[in-house]
Every structure is written in C-alpha cells, then in structure tokens.
C-alpha cells in the first residue's frame, strides 16, 4: 500500500504543473487586467503599476516566480493580503460548511436509501425516492432562498446570513444551519439514490439469504452484511462529492454571505487577480487529488476484489 501511495504522489507533480501552467496562461490570455477599472488610469500610472506587480517581466519569468512563491504573493485585488493569508482565512469556513453538509448528506442519504431499498416499489420506497428526486431537481439557488424565506424570514428560527454567530468565532452557530442543510440536502438526494441502488443489488445476493436463514436479526443483516457492499457506489461518489462540498459552493456562499473560499474561486477570475486565481486553483487541485487518493484506498479496503495495483 505504501508503494501505491508513493507512486500516486509522484504522479501528482506533473498534473499540478500542468494545472498551474494552464491556469496561468489562460488568465493572461483573457482580455482586461487587474488594473482596469471604471475610472481609467493614465498610461504612466498603468506602467508603474505593472512594474510594481512585476507584470512588466517576461511571462515565463513571472510564471516561475508565481509557482515558486505562490503563498507569499500579494493579491492584486486585496493588496494588503497575501494569497496564503486569504486561503488560510477562508478555507476553514468552506471546509466547516462542507463538513456539516456532508454529515447531513450522509446521514439523511444513507437512511433514506436504506429505508427505500427495504420495501422497493411500495410507499416506503416512493416517499423517500420522490423526496430525493426533488432534492436533485431543486437547484441550491432555489432551495437556499426558499429555506431562508420559511425558517428565517417567516419563523425567525435562524439568521438569514452570516457565519459563526455574532462574534464570528463560534464553533457552531445558528447561522450555519440553513446553508449546511441547503448544501447537504442536495448531496443527500444523490446519496440516497445511490444507496438504494447499491442495497437493492446486495439484498438479492445469496449470502444475504444465507445470513437471514442463519437467523441473523434484520438490523444485523443490514448493518453487518448489506451496507458494506451496498455503500460501494456511495464511496466512489464521495471522492468528487467531498471535494465539491469542502471546496465551497459559490452559490451557497453568495446567497448566505458566507466568508468562504468558494466566492474567491469565481470572483478572483472576474477580478483578474492573477495571483489569487492561481493560488485557489492550485489549492483545490491538490485537495481533489488527495481526496481521490483516499477514496481509492477506502475502496480497496472495503472491496476485497480490488488490489493496490
């Protein structure tokens, strides 16, 4: 397994370099620059700004400087912050939102999926399955405002925007509920569909019938015998899902005004904030590669048919 992990890490390096080069050069090819504003600056000032931010250097030199000094580079848009500072301040927020959403997604998704699979094609199946269908069909930008309207504006249970309570530092605050539920519900819908499918496959297997014949209790059959196999599709889905969840959702972060990194992912490109774009993209690329590695390891551990090679 160690050899497998080492090999995967080595493979990562060229992938990251490619991602960096593509991001860097695509940004530079896009028209407009970080200093284009409503009120145009004079040619002299523009040249001085370019000099100050090293934009007057040849591109390849800039690229090398960017990839070697990325975390300590200044953001173009927020000059008193470095790329590293911005990511380290904002990523924990996105990660926490993702974590809560994932708990909701897995909890609800697996529960609904299992329930639905136990009595296929009866109302016990139809109700959670239709709920899941609604969850998949309702985009987060509809779901979010809808929940906000009901639970925040009408009932007044939760704040409409914000993160971390009034002080902004609480581990769990009521303003985290609505965004987590909005994001979590969307993934819960997928997970319940996947769980139901996976479980239906497993529940008809011979070894399940054997376990039942042996006199194992229903709960034991589900938890011990079925789930391990039934959740395999969920596990493969979790790799990209976790990445998507903790990468922060631009939509959710914008609707609920959450100070996460998902907003910067999109806005830094619009702002032509060359350093921050590269920083955020590289950060996410690394994260996704790492998560995929974990999923691969998990899959092999759960499925004896697979091997590390």
């Amino acid at each position: 397994m160690l050899k497998f992990i080492l090999r995967r890490i080595l493979e990562t390096i060229p992938v990251l370099l490619c991602v960096a080069a593509m991001t860097f050069f695509m940004c530079r090819l896009a028209p407009g620059g970080p200093f284009d504003e409503d009120k145009q600056v004079t040619v002299e000032v523009r040249e001085l700004l370019n000099k100050q931010f090293n934009l007057d250097q040849p591109l390849h030199k800039q690229f090398i400087q960017y990839i070697t000094h990325l975390p300590t580079l200044q953001s173009f848009k927020y000059p008193n912050r470095t790329v590293g500072e911005i990511i380290s301040q904002k990523f924990p927020v996105s990660a926490k939102l993702g974590f809560f959403a994932m708990c909701i997604a897995l909890g609800l998704g697996i529960l609904f999926g299992v329930i639905a699979s136990l009595r296929p094609n009866t109302y016990v199946d139809y109700i959670p399955s239709s709920l899941a269908m609604i969850g998949i069909c309702l985009p987060t930008f509809v779901m979010g405002p809808l929940l906000m309207l009901v639970f925040s504006l009408q009932l007044g249970w939760f704040p409409a925007t914000g993160w971390g309570g009034f002080s902004g530092d609480q581990f769990f605050a009521s303003d985290m509920v609505l965004p987590s539920v909005t994001l979590g519900f969307f993934y819960a819908a997928y997970i319940s569909r996947l769980t139901r499918g996976g479980m239906l496959d497993i529940l008809t297997q011979d070894y399940i019938r054997t376990a039942k014949a042996k006199g194992a209790s229903g709960l034991r059959v589900i938890l011990k015998h079925s789930l391990r196999g039934g959740l395999l599709p969920v596990i493969s889905f979790m790799g990209p899902a976790v990445a998507g969840l903790i990468a922060g959702s631009f939509v959710i972060e914008t609707i609920f005004n959450i100070p996460g990194l998902g907003q910067d992912f999109v806005k830094s490109a619009f702002n032509r904030d060359y350093t921050l774009v590269l920083g955020v993209v590289m950060f996410y690329a690394t994260l996704i590669i790492f998560l995929n590695l974990i999923v691969d390891i998990l899959q092999v551990t759960l499925n004896p048919k697979l091997k590390f090679d």
Partner: peptide, 15 residues
C-alpha cells in the same frame, strides 16, 4: 454583502 437579495434578506431578518 454584494448580492442585493442577500442584503434584503439580512435586512428583513433583523441583521
């Protein structure tokens, strides 16, 4: 808060 609708929601929710 950039989004107008989010500003409005925060206003209506007493924030």
């Amino acid at each position: 808060i950039e989004l107008e609708t989010t500003q409005e929601n925060a206003f209506r929710a007493g924030q």
